[in-house]
Amino acid sequence: MKLRVIGLLAAFLVSQVSAVALFGQCGGNNYRGATACDEAYSQCLATSVPVPTAPIVIGTVDASSCPSSSPPAGQKFKFFGVNIAGFEFGCNTDGTCATNQVTPPLTEYSSYDGAGQMSHFVNDNKFNTFRLPVAWQYLTSSPGATLNTANFEKYDKLVQACLNTGAYCIIDIHNYGRWNGQIIGQSYPTDAHFTSLWNQIASKYASKSKVIFGIMNEPHNIPSLTTWVTTVQAAVTQIRQAGATSQYILLPGNDWSNAATFVSSGSADALSKVTNLDGSTSNLLFDVHKYLDSDNTGTHADCTTDNIAVFNSLAQWLRCNKRQALNSETGGGNTASCATYFCQQLAFQQANADVIVGVVGWAAGSFDATYVLNEGPTRSGQGWVDTSLVKSCMIPYAK
């Protein structure tokens, strides 16, 4: 489906019988209906979106029973921005991390200017959120150990550069639910080892209201989801007890945090039981990821899906259950197919921003221009030049 963003020219509207509602059909082969989008949305599709005739059942909840399963009009993302990568370089999906490959996106330590990138994204593009991945092994020499002072000082410089822009800054432990091949809380390391890490980090940023704690990047192949949720709860409890009582915390499920399976895998229901110290769920957001390439790996330049069906199902579950999610990793190549599909995905997500509260693209930071999903701007004189995907798809949803 090809998204059309149509300007509402008065002379054009005179000839239309009625405006097309959000994501309604406004074009396509043999289409003879209205072609102008509703002024409140200014977005419609060239082909029709199938509308189920039976009640939609998502997970264990019948969406038709919800008091309100439709998004309000005219929404904007609360969080929108880019991952600033580099401190997690060398990490593999088994939780091993070769810290000698870490490339801090700071000019003091490398040729990459993450601080300048974030300043540009905020001041010129109006982004307001950055995710700052880091390897657990870079921060501590072993599970349960105290923070490596020298390494944490370097990472903190990136966090402070982020905070200095006025943006939200997500601290993301990028270890896939593991330490050197072993699953946290289900063998070694223990929950106590993991919560020691989060106690130390949260204590450093307890007074920073715009720090967001991303408990863990992309857990996968977790044998016991119940045990994993116990680990997540322990981390949340430790963060709150460290004095970070009101900041947002991102709750990661199984299956690589995949938005497509977040409900069906049981992660949504299981993580719904995680609470703050007072038993509330305030500022606890579900952490979901979704790429647009053929196998959802984010390793291909071309995009093959708009993910509207995925995020429609997720949004309805969230709305039914009065919860919210942040899409903290998504993106595509700087290609025509991604300019089409990624724009469509972002349009739909923003239309559901009451429950999908933000999007953080992957990635800028220490990637060079040859990286397949590069979103990093390049220097041009005293300014910056954005990638084609950032220009065509991301900037319009930040302003």
Rank of each mutant, 00 (worst) to 15 (best):
A21G: 14
G144K: 13
I212L: 11
G81R: 13
G333R: 08
A54E: 10
I239W: 06
N307F: 00
L373T: 01
D113V: 07
Q247I: 11
S313T: 10
V236C: 10
G81I: 10
W362L: 09
Q160W: 00
A161Y: 06
A115G: 12
K78S: 14
S64C: 03
A40S: 13
N307Q: 10
K322Q: 13
T330P: 01
I239A: 07
G214C: 11
F12K: 12
F194C: 05
H300I: 01
P133R: 08
G214A: 08
E88M: 08
D269P: 00
H193V: 01
D295G: 02
A260R: 02
S265F: 01
S111F: 00
G381L: 09
K154D: 09
T261C: 03
N334D: 11
L284A: 12
P71F: 02
G28I: 04
Q16T: 04
A363M: 06
A234T: 11
C66F: 10
I56N: 02
S119V: 14
C97T: 03
Y112H: 13
R240A: 07
I173K: 02
A19V: 13
T165Q: 11
G361V: 02
Q349Y: 00
V17K: 10
N180H: 11
P377H: 03
Y112I: 05
N199E: 05
Q101G: 01
F87P: 08
V51W: 04
G332D: 02
N312T: 11
A235G: 06
N283I: 05
T99G: 06
E88L: 12
A309R: 08
Q75S: 06
G381F: 07
A19Y: 04
G166S: 05
D113Y: 06
